[in-house]
Simulated scan of single mutants.
Amino acid sequence: MGWFTARQDDATSRAAIDRRLIRAIVRHGSPTAADQLVRAYFDDVLAFIWRMTGDRERAFDLTQEAMIAALRSLAGYDPDKASLRTWLYAIASHKVIDARRANRIVITPLPLDEACDGDDPNRARDPADVQTDVDLLARIDAFVGRFDAGTQEIFHLHTAADLTFPQIAQARGEHTEAVKARYYRLIQAIRKEFGDERTN
């Protein structure tokens, strides 16, 4: 109970800090507040995009683009719809989708466990197995890229950002059941397309 309460307190404190920084940015154009807000979330957004693209340098560029877009759109951010982190992940997802459509990047998602065996984190996996995972994930991501942007965003936010369906639904202004239905339709299509192939 104490750990849960501490996490709630941390989230409440973070939200209060975010509100103060957003107010300073939107009302006064404070570069100091903008810098603090970007620093608070840059690494998380970078990790999210890197997980989707498999390219750290490109992920860094897209994270910068996402942060610039977020600062420009900050006046329209509604904390009642989503946490700032979720809102930033949604913007980042759009940047990756746009980059793919413009053929600016080749997507090679990282396996969630690319370096270690699932049963023993101290035992290195066979590099051939890791490469097989990378190849399959790249093909799956290319397949996902054929779907509409909303479905891609739901997929990315759930798999790469580990957001819950209610969080995604709130951020998108949709019903949770509708978001879940779109996600599972996509998963069924992936299973049909790739059959018994799977990553570790």
Rank of each mutant, 00 (worst) to 15 (best):
L110Y: 04
L110R: 14
P127L: 01
A128W: 07
D117T: 12
N103P: 00
D119Q: 05
R104M: 08
D126I: 02
I107V: 15
A102M: 05
R125V: 14
G118M: 10
R104V: 04
R125G: 07
I105W: 01
C116D: 08
R123I: 13
P109E: 01
R101H: 12
N103H: 15
A115S: 09
V106D: 11
P121M: 08
V130W: 01
A128P: 00
A115H: 12
D129Y: 03
C116E: 10
N103W: 09
Q131D: 14
D119F: 13
R101M: 06
R123H: 09
D119K: 13
R125K: 06
D113R: 14
D113F: 14
R101P: 07
T108N: 11
D113V: 08
P111L: 03
C116Q: 11
R104P: 08
C116R: 15
P109N: 05
L112D: 10
R100P: 03
A102S: 12
N122Y: 10
V106R: 13
R104K: 13
L112R: 13
A128I: 08
L112N: 07
Q131C: 01
R123P: 02
E114G: 13
E114K: 00
D129S: 14
A102D: 10
Q131F: 05
I107S: 09
P121W: 04
R123S: 10
T108C: 08
D120W: 01
V106E: 15
D113W: 09
R101F: 06
R100A: 15
D126E: 09
A124H: 10
V130E: 09
P127M: 01
V106I: 12
D120G: 03
L110P: 01
I105G: 03
A115I: 06
